[in-house]
Write a protein that binds this DNA or RNA. Sequence first.
DNA 1: GGCAAATGTAAGGTAGATGTAAGGTTAAGA
DNA 2: TCTTAACCTTACATCTACCTTACATTTGCC
Lengths: 235, 235
Amino acid sequence: MNLDYLKNKRILLVDDEPGLQDMVASILQNEGFTQVRTAGSVREALTAAGTFRPELAILDVMLPDGDGFSLMEVLRKDGDYPVLFLTARGEEEDKFKGFGLGADDYMVKPFLPKELIFRITAILRRTYKSEDPVVSLKYCKIDFERAEALREADPKEPIPLTAKEHAILLTLCRNAGRIVTIDALCEAAWGDNPYGYENSLMAHIRRIREKIEENPSKPESLITVKGLGYKLIVQ
Amino acid sequence: MNLDYLKNKRILLVDDEPGLQDMVASILQNEGFTQVRTAGSVREALTAAGTFRPELAILDVMLPDGDGFSLMEVLRKDGDYPVLFLTARGEEEDKFKGFGLGADDYMVKPFLPKELIFRITAILRRTYKSEDPVVSLKYCKIDFERAEALREADPKEPIPLTAKEHAILLTLCRNAGRIVTIDALCEAAWGDNPYGYENSLMAHIRRIREKIEENPSKPESLITVKGLGYKLIVQ
DNA sequence: GGCAAATGTAAGGTAGATGTAAGGTTAAGA
DNA sequence: TCTTAACCTTACATCTACCTTACATTTGCC
């Protein structure tokens, strides 16, 4: 499983100790995280969050002008991204308070850099799983960034997807497992005035099935739900 | 934010110490988790996972007939649910190995019960945050987005609903508990000119009952109100 | 412009959803 | 208790929504 796309996630680090701030920031950068922003106080954190729009926050509990918990509550109003708390040793109650308010993890200082990286990666993977540019189907993987289908049985050449195939598959994938109506698929593929393309859609569905299914006439990934639409079964 | 639906998630607990197994199971049950299954070995775990289809696994690293890591890799082939590892103190390398393989969290024994609960809740919340709206009937749940009935007694395959079944059930569901006339149901299923389909509706009602009732001839969810119509009893 | 690839169109085919009918069963009312 | 209309149940016929294929047309690139 390739997790490179997680390295581009925006991470906001809030801690008032310059030493720890530098340490964590450099750990993250060494691991390949490219979008790290730091703040030393609640005030700075709020300013940064406004423009930076973090996708993960690492918050110290003790801050000079407030505490991490109330900061989290404010931040969460702008976006439901995960939060990892850092606490000083021996403040058990604090840990539980953080979890109770909806934190995703906490770590006790001092910690091993490696463990921080692992925990961050685990949280990001869970949270942004659906943005993985590669999704696994029963008989192949789809790489949306490259617009390719990769058959697993015979790993020859990747099979290229056309523009319409890509658009249709992406829409199905964003609603993985759920039924997507024919109207919605036409809308996704032809934008405004998506009428009169029902038959064309059907032809595309067939072509997609020939690329992703073992037997395109007995589909197991791209399923027809007669009278309602289609759905994509992802692994 | 209401997190009650997380209490119904299926949790598989694998540990070979009966003492710890009982402890964790009772902690979970005390916290309201209703679907907990235990296994004491890799072999038992694989058997249980086949029918139980867990939505979270708690794995001990040391097992009598194998280790938790390779167990996770096998389990993950059937479903990408989160995994939390339990390790004995002082096996740092183990922790990192677990994370590296895609675990979601780990805890070092002995741990505080409260912390286990918080960590489990945090993982479940992240993983299952955008859950499909389902309605619960006496013997099954209906997922309208997927057009499926999920029997609870025998958790086999979900049973697909056809277009007409979907439309009729949706109308009944929107008037849950209230009587819906036959005319109204025909209107919902056949739109304009909904006349002459009374018998057809009856056949559909029968087919729906075969999917959602324990005994379709003694319905307990989709009730006939003679001379008035039908009503759906939701939990 | 010329070419190849992508996309759209049309027409015949088919499986599974839906409709139908006929006999059976139930419960409300007399 | 008897009657009867309303509803159940089943098997089977039908037909629609979708499949499939070949071919026509458009698009985009050299």
